[in-house]
Computed example of a mutant assay.
Amino acid sequence: MKQFQNNSLYYDVDVKIIKQSEHCIFYEMRNDEGKGSIKSYQVFPGIKLTYNDFHMGQCPYHNPLHKDILEINHCREGRFECNFINGMYTYLGEGDLAVNTMVNNRIIDSTFPLEHYHGVSILIDLEDAAKMISPILKDISIDLYILRDKLCAGDRCFIIRAKNSIQHIFSELYTIPDEVKYGYFKLKVLELLLFLSIIDTSEQFEKRTYFQKNQVNKIKQIKQFLTQHIEYHFTLKELSKRFDISLNSMNSCFKAVYGIPIYAYIRTYRMQVAASMLLQSQYSITVIAGNVGYENSSKFASAFKAVMHISPSTYRKSH
């Protein structure tokens, strides 16, 4: 178990080791926000693959023991927010892949804006992994240091938005049977490294990947304002003026943070609140509709069915 002896130092103090074996370590995190779990597998010397499952807003703090670690993250569900030391923010959505280095603690904070996140991370200790890669891939050239400099030049976070080639690599990792998983992990990690080594970075780089701190803070204030006043309907112009942010910036940044446009977000939130009220109260559907901002109960019923895929009355009866 020597290969895992320092893993307890890798995450912050809120993360506890629940189980540990020769090739796997299982972490759990619980606080007032919710809970999360991390299953970390040793795939090769210097390379770990982890499954991340969180139902909370805060991501556990990474504390790399030395600087040369390459981190690859694939988001299956939810959203991932990364706050860099330069005051900029970037986001990972469903199906997206991100590659970054843990150099000099460039990342101040990481959060889950939707308060849930599921995905896979691959952590590569470049010094140890580089010694292993060459003997395994005798006929294929993969230089991990060149790969790092290619994807993360200028300390950037390299992001590939959801596409079939990424889905092909990761989809089976979420359903692989236990009896073949260790061998399959090895194949998938090598496949991913080969894919990244030949990718054309000029086609993948996005000019608008990052958002400024003041923009993100205003967007979070807008979200909080809307969710605290769900009985009212505000126009985008009203929100833009109230929070002193341009319409274009407000719309693009809100979608980056929460994954969907403002109106779609608040409609979904209203229906989730309405669903809770249908189950936990004896209020009529008309009263519940009014509580979430719908004077017309038929329009509320249509919106509820569009989001929850079932009518309000049927939802109440079936649950």
Rank of each mutant, 00 (worst) to 15 (best):
L114P: 09
E115L: 03
Y315A: 15
E33S: 13
M56C: 13
N296I: 09
I198D: 12
L193Q: 10
L114A: 08
D109T: 06
K48C: 04
Y265K: 01
I266Q: 10
I169R: 06
S171E: 13
I159M: 10
T90P: 00
T227H: 03
G78S: 05
N104G: 03
V292D: 07
N296Q: 10
I160K: 11
P60D: 03
P45H: 05
I245F: 05
V307Y: 12
R76E: 06
R242G: 01
Y283A: 10
P261K: 04
Q215N: 13
S281Y: 09
N251K: 15
Q228P: 00
S171D: 13
P177L: 00
L278M: 11
P135H: 06
I198N: 10
V273G: 00
I18E: 06
R242H: 13
A153V: 12
F300S: 11
Y232D: 07
D244G: 01
L123E: 13
D96A: 01
I166V: 15
S8G: 02
K2G: 04
C59A: 14
T201M: 09
Y11A: 01
C152H: 12
V120N: 04
I107V: 14
S249V: 14
G259Y: 10
T209V: 12
S197C: 08
V43D: 03
M271S: 07
F185P: 00
A301E: 11
Y27I: 08
L247S: 07
H118E: 15
S302H: 15
F225C: 03
V189K: 03
H229I: 03
E179F: 12
L147D: 06
A303M: 09
A129K: 12
N86C: 01
I122C: 06
G34R: 06
K35S: 14
P312M: 12
F80Q: 01
L126H: 10
G259P: 08
S240G: 02
R106S: 04
D109K: 14
E33Y: 10
P135D: 06
R242T: 13
K67Q: 11
D143M: 07
D244E: 11
T235A: 04
M250D: 08
A275S: 14
L247E: 01
G36D: 07
F254G: 01
C253T: 15
Y258H: 07
A130S: 15
Y182R: 04
C253F: 02
V287G: 00
N217Y: 11
Y283K: 13
V273H: 01
I142F: 11
K218N: 05
A289P: 05
S110Q: 12
T111I: 07
L173R: 04
S297L: 01
E22K: 12
L239E: 02
S21G: 13
K163L: 08
Y294L: 08
Y232H: 13
G87Q: 01
Y182K: 04
L70H: 09
T175P: 00
R30F: 07
F225Q: 04
S240P: 05
S37N: 14
I38A: 02
R267V: 04
T101A: 08
S318F: 11
P64Y: 02
P45N: 11
M271K: 09
S37I: 08
L151T: 13
N73R: 07
K150M: 14
G36W: 09
I166G: 05
N100S: 00
V43N: 03
Q58K: 15
S8R: 13
T235N: 02
